[in-house]
Structures are given as structure tokens and as C-alpha cells.
Write a protein that binds this DNA or RNA. Structure first.
Length: 271
DNA sequence: AATGATGTCAACCGCCCGGTG
DNA sequence: CCACCGGGCGGTTGACATCAT
């Protein structure tokens, strides 16, 4: 591939591995002075023996101001689940809707918590994966890479619901069934993802977490008014009035209260 | 306390895409 | 139109931490 050399390759002897505090300082100072971009020259210009790719990654995932770090909140988790159901593994797209979170963080979180796992064979999984990667390493020069990747890239369309938070995977009772039905109807009536879908087509054949959760979780997760930064490009892009109107036109009750919560179909939802 | 199993996450790899000459 | 390059993305790896036995 052409782009391979663009970042500076191994023959230039770039340093690899964990970043030291000194390197972080150099990179932060450099980006602070010159701004983001032109990563390929950052490595040398900043006095770092790092590839541009490595510099960019370190900046984006670790040094960039405004990163949250720490535990993913249940609300963020809900957003991740919902957006993943919409878009699949579009981690960077999902990350745009979680201010302070990086695509890498979300990707890791998803893989850790929701990735399909065969619990029964879980024990040997990692070992066999490593054995496989060793095998691949050994075959590296014998097999076309594309073919190799396609063989690995099996669609991730099955989810291990038992790994979901307990509140999300309980077998729905009759009442919950009804609510979920209503939620689906509401989602048809209320195109809350319309703006986002303009930019990114929904992933096909991926079950939505609405298959697992009740509506109060869904609405409480996505309609997160604290996180609205760009009023024209956000899945929670709606104001309270609009939400109230849309909800009522879809046959739901939805009342807002001053203290950071609303009552949706009798459920109190914080935001 | 020792050891193996499992979880977490920073970092790397390889590919794709858009801009440019 | 084509080749090259920079930038970005998703998948994967591996070191370290934590848990279980």
C-alpha cells in the first residue's frame, strides 16, 4: 500500500513502545505551539524519535486536552450501545458523541464488555488467539494480506447479552414487552437519529439494544442534554420542548422538571 | 504465598481515503 | 488520470494489573 511509507517506516529507526513523560512533554509543547496536524514532521521537529503516526495517536488518545479518562458512566454506556447498534464498529463516529472519550477507549470498552464471547470456551480463547496470531506471523509472507484480513473479519452481529449490565438483558415481562413495542413505534414517529444518519449510514443487520432494554433506559441514555455541543450534529440534538412535543405526538407522556430530570411514561429519568 | 487465568488498555499495524501535483 | 503522500480508521497485540485457585 502506498500510504505505508508516508508515516515514516521502520528503516528510519523510530522509537516504539510506551511513551515517557519527557516525550509527552515534548509533544504537548510542540502541539501547543504549532497546533495539530503535519504529524509526519512532528516526530523530528519536536525532538522526538517517533513516527508521525505514533505522535498523532499519543496526542489524540492521551495528551489532547479535555479527555475524560476514568470509568465509562452508565449513560455513556447506553449511548455506546445504541450508537453501535446504529453504526457498528464506527468507533470514531461514536466517539464524536461522547465528548472526552476517544475511539480507542470506546473500542476497548466495547470489546471488553460486549464483544461476542463463547463463555463455555472462554478459558482457552486468548491462548488460541495467540497461537493463531503466531501462526499468522509464521505464514506472514506466504499469504496475501487482504485474504488474511477477510478471513479474520467475520461480521460481529451476535452479541453476548449475558455480558450486558444486568438491567439490560433481563428477560422482558409482558409490560416491558409492551413498552419496547411502544418504543419501536416511537422511534419510527420520532426520527431522533436523523441528523446523525445523514453523515453515517446505519450498520446493517445489527440488532439494536432496544431489543434488550426498556424505553426509559433508551431515552435516558440518548437524550442527554448535557452533552449537546453541536446543535446541528448530535443524536441528542433536540430541545426539551421538541422532545415533549414529539413524545406527545407519538402518544407518550413526557414532562420536564427543573432539577435535571424528566418523567417519561411514568419513569423518572435523570439528565 | 505462589501461580496461572483473565481483564484492561496503550500502542502498533495495515489498510483506506481524500488531497495534491 | 495517475501516483504519491498525509491523515485517519478499525483490528490486533502485548505488557501489566487483578482475580481466582
Amino acid at each position: 500500500m502506498v500510504g505505508m511509507m508516508g508515516w515514516g517506516s521502520q528503516e528510519q529507526g523510530w522509537r516504539k513502545g510506551p511513551w515517557t513523560p519527557e516525550e509527552d512533554k515534548l509533544l504537548s509543547e510542540y502541539v501547543g505551539l504549532h497546533g495539530e496536524g503535519r504529524w509526519s514532521s512532528v516526530g523530528r521537529s519536536a525532538g522526538l524519535n517517533r513516527s508521525g503516526k505514533s505522535c498523532r495517536l499519543r496526542w489524540v488518545n492521551y495528551l489532547r486536552p479535555g479527555l475524560k479518562r476514568g470509568q465509562i458512566t452508565p449513560q455513556e454506556e447506553g449511548i455506546i450501545i445504541e450508537l453501535h447498534a446504529l453504526w457498528g464498529n464506527k468507533w470514531s463516529t461514536i466517539a464524536r458523541y461522547l465528548p472526552g472519550r476517544t475511539d480507542n477507549e470506546i473500542k476497548n470498552y466495547w470489546r471488553t464488555h460486549f464483544k461476542k464471547k463463547d463463555k463455555s470456551s472462554h478459558k482457552g480463547e486468548k491462548r488460541s488467539r495467540r497461537a493463531q496470531s503466531l501462526k499468522q506471523h509464521l505464514n506472514h509472507h506466504q499469504q496475501p494480506q487482504r485474504q488474511q484480513q477477510e478471513a479474520q473479519a467475520q461480521p460481529e452481529t451476535v452479541y453476548e447479552t449475558e455480558n450486558m449490565p444486568s438491567s439490560l438483558h433481563a428477560e422482558p415481562n409482558e409490560h416491558q414487552e409492551k413498552i419496547m413495542e411502544e418504543t419501536r413505534a416511537a422511534k419510527e414517529a420520532v426520527p431522533m437519529h436523523a441528523a446523525a444518519e445523514d453523515h453515517c449510514p446505519p450498520a446493517q443487520e445489527v440488532p439494536s439494544w432496544e431489543d434488550f432494554v426498556g424505553d426509559h433506559v433508551l431515552w435516558g441514555g440518548l437524550w442527554n442534554f448535557d452533552d449537546v455541543h453541536d446543535p446541528f450534529d448530535h443524536p441528542s440534538n433536540c430541545n426539551k420542548m421538541a422532545m415533549q412535543n414529539q413524545a406527545s405526538s407519538a402518544g407518550f407522556s413526557c414532562d420536564f422538571h427543573g432539577g435535571g430530570y424528566y418523567i417519561f411514561q411514568g419513569n423518572v429519568v435523570d439528565f
